[in-house]
């Protein structure tokens, strides 16, 4: 369980997060949705400790993560897997070495055990026979999947995904969403996903938080999202032509 309390953050006097509180439950996909520039990435990176919040508390189970030093954070970060917005695979090493990297840094497994684990994770995301390719040789969807494999290599308790399906075609996007959902249930992780894709929201959103200009405006489930009385959320939800059409016919 991850809890955030009254998070505030500004960059050079520019407020990008105002008083955000929320709870993220284990074994579920928690979605953070909002328009581009609304502060989703900043919020997610603050939870991971990659941005320092100005004030507020970030709880992982019963510790306040943002009060810990580098060593204390490292302990908890062992349990976090992250899929960054642009995949963030290391360019200079191969797919196999990328997935192996966290194992090298955090564990004392033997080389054979590491390779086994790497292959297990790559198989799990359906990347076969690509161990010796470099990230530049992969398609966008493959990169995302390798990045997911890297994120789950340490069997994390928490999974963070920043726009896992942006830049992908609709079918691949759904595959990636499904993969994240399966992994979340299989390993009962606390998963937080940033997205601005309504397809994902309706597909995998169990608990949803909507933010706009750094303020949390709404919270609920995907069944409630179509009937909210939050105007900003409705503008967002019914932004695409098809959704508007369906709504007016109703």
């Amino acid at each position: 369980m991850i809890k955030i309390k009254n998070l505030n953050k500004s960059f050079n006097g520019n407020r990008v997060m105002t008083d955000i509180s929320a709870e993220f439950e284990p074994g579920k996909i928690n979605l953070i949705i909002g328009r581009s520039g609304s502060g989703k990435t900043v919020l997610l990176k603050s939870i991971m400790g990659l941005h320092e919040v100005d004030d507020g508390e970030i709880w992982f189970e019963d510790v306040i993560f943002n009060k810990l030093d580098f060593v204390g954070r490292k302990e908890i970060r062992k349990e976090m897997g992250v899929l960054f917005q642009g995949s963030a695979l290391f360019d200079s090493i191969t797919v196999e070495q990328n997935v192996r990297f966290p194992l090298d840094m955090f564990t004392n497994k033997s080389p054979e055990e590491k390779i086994d684990r790497v292959n297990f994770c790559l198989n799990r995301v359906n990347i076969i026979n690509a161990n010796n390719l470099y990230p530049a040789e992969l398609s966008g969807g493959m990169k995302k999947r390798v990045a997911i494999a890297r994120a789950i290599s340490l069997n994390p308790k928490y999974l963070f995904c920043d726009e896992p399906n942006s830049g992908l075609d609709p079918i691949t996007a759904i595959l990636i969403d499904e993969l994240i959902k399966e992994l979340t249930e299989e390993f009962s992780m606390t998963t937080i996903v940033n997205t601005h894709d309504m397809n994902s929201v309706m597909g995998i959103g169990e608990k949803i938080i909507f933010i706009s200009d750094g303020v949390k405006c709404w919270e609920g489930s995907k069944d409630e999202i179509l009937h909210s009385d939050c105007d900003l959320l409705n503008d967002f939800v019914f932004a695409n032509a098809l959704a508007r059409k369906l709504r007016s016919e109703k």
């Binding site: 990176k45 991971m48 990659l50 490292k74 970060r77 062992k78 976090m80 992250v82 960054f84 963030a88 290391f90 990297f101 966290p102 840094m105 955090f106």
Partner: peptide, 8 residues
């Protein structure tokens, strides 16, 4: 960021 997340 990814490096930092891996405790590096």
């Amino acid at each position: 960021d990814a490096l930092e997340m891996m405790g590096v």
